[in-house]
Design a protein around this nucleic acid. Structure first.
Lengths: 190, 190
DNA sequence: CCTTGGCTATACAGATCTGTATAGTTGATG
DNA sequence: CATCAACTATACAGATCTGTATAGCCAAGG
């Protein structure tokens, strides 16, 4: 039972923070939407910042799971998976409530690098990079680390472009660049 | 004289919005820092949002001017200018008060696409893209438009990565990708 | 039955926010 | 000198924010 209200809060908070932003979303709004009393919130969390952190932790876990699963379901071919990354991102943008990367947005509002909120964003990006590097390694390219970094740069670019300019086609653009990068690596291999 | 106080306000606002964020920066803070009375602000601007818009307009103008000038000073070679983009960005990140792209950050806080603030961000990105397309056209590549889009994706990726993860080296990574893209185009040309 | 712990409801403290009202100051220009 | 416009100073309205204090409900488990 202890979990239910807490989870309700984090879930609602994540949605509202994503839709309206962190500062713009008041505690009261979250409580009303979640149907939870204020004292319950402060029983589970020390402050609003702690709730933000919990929401971002959930987002990190959920996003990475969904992302990995989606990429791996696209194809068994280890090389094609590197391109599937951008197909998965492209599908993400079709959702009408897409509001960009929650962690990039968090860094926009909490720019201080010492902030725990900013720190969790850094960690999220590090973990995503780790996964992409696993993919490049599995693909057996000669230089997996640099390729992973390049792909991550493209990913960030695609996400931001889709968010700001609403250009869902950006994913396809990035995919062609990724093809070139992968092709270049396999050329160097031979 | 009319301009001075107004300019002071916009200048201070731009700096504080960049450092702390838009919602997190109160009017009173801007007034104190600028040394201006509150009534003066509301004489020049109808609301805080109008001040934000003015600050972003200044930012757009200033950024694009600086950016274009910097790129063009790097080299006269029209093709190398496409790579110089990323050298210029890399230098930007060295500044310790670099807080990412003000327009990406604005979209994080004002996610609604109908918002005037979001709209000015879209316009900024459109103008930057226009400049990059001019560069690719001047370089005489066979497909200037797609190349410009790809370069812009990389630019966004670099900016965000430098902001979130503090990875100033990202610019160099992006540069190598750009080299490959440009090289590929000149190969297709022949 | 009775205690305990999670949850609710309400009220409030104290700060901060945007925006306004009012009255006074200053400085350039006719 | 007089006027006019920009600017200042102060106070305040009204909303909203985070966080706390207090008191009570309700259901599960010994």
């Amino acid at each position: 039972m202890a979990r239910e209200k807490r989870d309700e809060l984090v879930e609602t908070a994540l949605e509202l923070f994503g839709r309206e932003g962190f500062h713009a979303t008041g505690i009261d709004r979250i409580l009303a939407e979640a149907g939870v009393a204020k004292m319950t919130l402060y029983h589970h969390f020390r402050s609003k910042d702690e709730l933000i952190l919990a929401a971002l932790r959930l987002r990190d876990e959920r996003f990475r799971n969904d992302f990995m699963r989606s990429v791996e379901r696209k194809t068994e071919d280890r090389t094609k998976r590197l391109l599937a990354i951008f197909d998965v991102l492209g599908e993400l943008f079709d959702s009408e409530d897409f509001r960009g990367c929650a962690f990039i947005n968090a860094c926009a509002e909490y720019g201080d690098r010492d902030s725990a909120i900013h720190a969790i964003a850094i960690e999220h990006k590090r973990l995503v990079f780790g996964y992409v590097r696993e993919l490049t390694q599995a693909a057996g390219v000669p230089e997996p680390e640099p390729l992973a970094r390049q792909l991550c740069l493209l990913m960030e670019g695609v996400i931001v472009t889709a968010q700001v300019s609403g250009d869902a086609d950006a994913a396809a653009q990035a995919r062609t660049v990724a093809e070139l990068l992968v092709h270049e690596q396999s050329r160097r291999e031979s």
